[in-house]
Amino acid sequence: MSNGVVNGDIVVEANNLTKVYEGHTAVDHISFTVKRGEIFGFLGPNGAGKTTTFLMLLGLSEPTEGYARILGMDPFKEPLKIKRMTGYLQENMGFYRDLNAIQMLDFIAELNGIPEDEKMERIERSLEAVGLLNQAKKKIEAYSRGMRQRLGIAEILLKEPKVALLDEPTLGLDPDATNRMTDLILGLSEEKGMAVILSTHLLHHAQKICDRFGIIIGGKLVALGTMDEIAEKKLNIGEKMYTLEEVYMKYFEEG
């Protein structure tokens, strides 16, 4: 792609992003950047504006104020390029239930214009990566929640994007499925070098895999930085042991 990484390694940039729905401010002037190969933990209570931020990054929703850039491009000026290079795993994602995994991925491949000659191979590779290859002929209807979420990751792998936006990929998964999902997400950034923005409520897992965090409460970004940086502001540093959960709750209670 001619559109390489602009401004060093920064892949995703949100600058004063704001979204107002009929007088109610869902997202209030938030700014952050995410680098290549980085997992950005996007934390916050339900309804804080995480999904709205994702939609604005993708260009599915127009910001009232501010702007988003992915690989230096404006989601509204070059929507197709951005969507080709961004994988989005939405919250409560839907599937065409009558299709099986291969048909679903084939459809996604067609929409993304993946060359015919490498299509099948890429489909198989992504199914293999998420451990669904042996169930690929089964209708999605019969999939468990964990399998569906993994199929969602397979859709992202298939596109081989530069950015992955994951909106609560672990929602409603059992502990084993959650662990598998966490490993897959780690793989996206470590093996594929994607910039990952991950929203989740499982702070214990987030602490393990995220490089940096942003905490959004009531539409405002109240904390931004590495674990140590965001902890420093609320807890007395040097107080040797703390978990992400403790830090988050501090922000939540005081924010």
Partner: peptide
């Protein structure tokens, strides 16, 4: 129906107009 089943936003997140 696509909107209710959550497939519409998946569709629109793909590179199509």
């Amino acid at each position: 129906r696509e909107r209710n089943e959550g497939t519409l936003s998946k569709l629109l997140a793909q590179p199509i107009y």
